Structures are given as structure tokens and as C-alpha cells.
Amino acid sequence: MSQQIEINIPELLRKGVILWIFFASLTVIGLITSVFKVPADSQGVILRFGKFEKTVGPGLRFKLPFGIDEHEIIVTEGVRTAQFGILGSIADSSQSFNPLSLGERNPSTRERSLQRSIMTGDLNLLEVEWIVQYQISNPRDWLFEVKDPQGTLSDLTEAIVRTVVGDRTFDEVITIGRLDIAQETRDRLQDAVKKYKLGIRISEVQFKNINPPSPVQASFNEVNQAEQEKGRMINEAKGSYDQQTIRASGTAQQKISEAIGYATKRVNEALGDISKFNAMFIEYQKAPEVTTSRLYWERMKEVIPKMGKRIIIDEETSQILPLLQLNQVENGGVK
């Protein structure tokens, strides 16, 4: 038969054991509920009876125990991403949300199509997909100033994008204006979230895809290809024009240089002839007969070799032809 154990509660109370156990448990619970850790990329928000008390930085932090103070950990260093008009999700986003999927709603394809359908300033429809990257800069405003900060951010972003795109033409949005639209959207959105005290800082706005509606996509592609072909042919024509212009300019410059060289040569030759004539005239003045004779024989020396074979006889000589046998020529001489 097992031995019965009797507990004498008054004896325990008299010795204070239960009281010590109570205070020890209370101390442990107080320590557990008063200490919390804030990660390095976050800030802690302490609430006292549900009311904002203060914000604390990373590290081991303390608060009033037993539920008097509560805390919320808000990531402030990580970049969050809001998707708009994108049917899938962004794989490289650590924290992202689709504005249409907030709350208990299950967005339909029609709702997503309506969000991405935006009209331009020249009354053309576009299907636009974009994302907004932001960081929480003020945890207090993020938690308490607006009831639904993500929903508010969604409404503000969509309204601003529709306004910015609506101020531009179809061609501008689809081609060269994408970066300007993204920058203007970011600036306007930053001003709006500051005005509404959302407690966030807009890092970047990126437009992923901007396309015409699906029913006219094929026609648009054909027009786009035609425009590209037109641009290519214009560039080729300009290149050929520039090439021919450069070649013609080089040829013209060469002709001009040759003409200048020829003119310089002729002038120098003329100057040389003048100097030669002046020197000869000086010699002629000193000895006219000698100079005249010398000039005559120098000229004859130049002229006679060019005349070919010639026989010079006295005009009174007769019957010389039978003796010379002029028709027999051998090795360039007369036999």
C-alpha cells in the first residue's frame, strides 16, 4: 500500500515558500515581457496602452512589462516594392505587394487589366506595368498617420501615373519619354507621400513594360518595324552622303593644292626666265656681237638635232644627187 503524502499548506505559507515562488515567477515574467531585440535593419516602436510612446534603434531594448508596453518591429533599411499592372510577382523583391491583393480581395484579370490600361494625351490606350520601390523612413507615421498606408500609396501612385502619362503623346510614352515619365512620377509621388505623412521615402519608379493593347499589338509591331527600317535607310543614306561629301571634299582639296603648286611653279619659272633674260641683257650690252653669235649657235645646237637628216649644199652646186645615193640608208647613216 502506497504511502500517502500530506501537504501542510499553512505550514508552507508560514515558511513563505509559496510567496517566494510567486515573486520569482513574477520576476521571470517581467523580465521576459520587458526585453526585446531590434534587428540591425529595423527600428522598434514602443506603444504604451496602445498609444505611441517612442521609437528605439537596433539592439537590446527594454519596455514596461506585463503588457503595459507593446512593441512593433518595422524594417527601415530594406527596400519594399509595390507592383502595378503586373500579373505575376517580382522574384528579386524581398518585400513586395500587389496593391490589388490587399485585404481579403482576390483580384480578377479584369481588375488587373483596368489598372494597367492608361490613356495618353492624344487619346490612345496603353498597357503599362510599373513598380515603386520605397523605404520606411518614419515608423511612427507609417503605423499611425494613415489607416492603410499601402492602399494609400497604391491610390496615389496610380493617380499620379495616369496624370503624367495623360500629359504626353502615345509616341513619346512608347519611345523616348519613359525615363522622364519615371522621374516625374517619382518626384510627384514623393511630394504626395510627404503631404499625407505616410512615413516613407520613394527610392525609384521603374516602368517595366509599356505596350499597346493586345488587339492592336501586331499592327503596332509592323508600324514599329517600318519606322525602324525607315530610320535605318535614312542613316545609311546619311552615311553614304557623308562618305561621298568627304571624298569630294578631299578630291577638291587635292585639285586646289595641285593648282596652287602649278601656279607657284609657273611663277617661279617666269621669275627665273626674267632673271636669266636680265643677266643675258647685261652681257649683251657689254659685247653685242659676241653675245648674238653665241646665242645663235646655242639655238642652232638645239634646233638642228630635231630636224632629222638634212643635206646642205651650195645653191650653185649641180649633179650632186647621183653621187650621194640618198635612197640607200643603212644603220642610220648614208652610204
Rank of each mutant, 00 (worst) to 15 (best):
S2C: 02
F62E: 00
E158W: 05
T251P: 01
F277A: 14
F220R: 13
P10G: 04
I9A: 01
A91S: 05
R186C: 08
R201C: 06
L100R: 04
P99S: 15
V79H: 01
S101W: 00
V35E: 02
L60A: 07
N106R: 09
A159Y: 02
K276Y: 08
V161I: 12
E258T: 07
R188L: 07
L64V: 01
G261I: 09
P107I: 02
I74E: 03
G57K: 10
A237G: 11
M1A: 11
S117G: 09
Y262E: 14
P10S: 06
V35Y: 04
N278W: 08
I131T: 03
G44T: 08
I9E: 06
R294V: 04
L102M: 05
G30H: 05
I18G: 06
G333E: 15
S101D: 10
K197P: 00
Q319S: 11
I90Q: 00
F23H: 07
E316M: 14
R294F: 06
L153H: 01
E289H: 13
R310M: 08
L31M: 08
S89I: 07
K51S: 11
S137D: 10
G177H: 06
Q217K: 15
D187I: 13
G199E: 04
R110H: 09
A237T: 13
S101Y: 02
L156G: 04
R105W: 02
Q95N: 05
V45W: 00
F84L: 06
I200G: 02
G151N: 10
I282N: 15
S89R: 04
V329G: 12
M1E: 04
R178M: 13
K63S: 02
R247P: 02
S42P: 00
K51A: 10
I282Y: 12
V303Q: 02
F97S: 08
L123I: 08
G88K: 03
T120H: 14
W20S: 14
R116W: 02
T291H: 10
V17P: 01
Q244I: 14
